[in-house]
Amino acid sequence: MHKKPLSKQIYDARWCYLFVLPCSILTGMFVIYPIGMSWYFSLLDWSGFTKEAKFIGLQNYYEAVNDEFFWDAFIRSFIFMFGTVPVKIVLGFIIAVFLNNQVLKLAPFFRTVIFMPVVTAIAIIGIVMTFVFSPFNGPANKFLMSTNLTSAPIDFLGNPDTVLPTVMGVYVWKWLGITMMYWLAALQTVPQDVYDAAKIDGAEGYRLWIHIILPIVLPFAIVIILVEAVGALNVFPLIETMTAGGPFFSSEVMEIYIFRTAFVTDSGTMPRLGYACAAGVFWGVAVLFITVLQGLWMRRTRRI
């Protein structure tokens, strides 16, 4: 069969291209162009708002990979991810299982309560939590002291040993509702017939969940983990409002590191947008790598 020339094919599908055009333009403006420019900026020695920008090749990358604070922040981002995602996945699943039970009359109420932090502005939560965890009259410390769990107030956000776990805890609480909703959506795809058939076959309790329901929702789990993992690597507003990466970098994750180097800091240093872009590109590639790995894992799981 004779194949049409490309120009003819495009002409024939002109309406399709026309409808795709607005989206393509917007994607180009707000996704492709910024990504491309950040790659370009990462090759410059540039503060970001002066005319003077010197091309320095890969020097920013070289400096970044030799900076211990860069790697500390890099590793801390993954600690944050590995510390929060499993908790959210497991906790979200357990809550979803309970709230998916039609017998539980108050399920909508609990769903709403657990989902409420998700719709609250993250900056507000960050600021409020600094008061909640304040060692002076903060409710968290008041509770611990009144129940004799501690004899002295704990500086949750000022102690390098407690700051990251505290922020991670707030993050889990803030976003648990959305994980629960993902799981609820997944669980609601399991047909009632499956439950009925399992019961007839004598599968109940944990056996029903482990052997019947879990394999069905497993592909969803992969997607949920992927979404959650990428989400846990994007925690800038919460950390900036709660600790700004302190004390002494204890809670500085990659986004805070990039922000700090891209703008003037408390120390009055000049910003370094070129260097920050290099760190950002490096970080973006790392996140992309993880996403690809997870994608491959998902495909493999589906085949099984």
Partner: peptide, 17 residues
């Protein structure tokens, strides 16, 4: 000029913590 990392301010904070 670029204030080196960690700056004096951060060093003192790090010593304090």
């Amino acid at each position: 000029s670029r204030v080196p990392d960690p700056s004096l301010a951060l060093v003192i904070q790090g010593l304090y913590t």
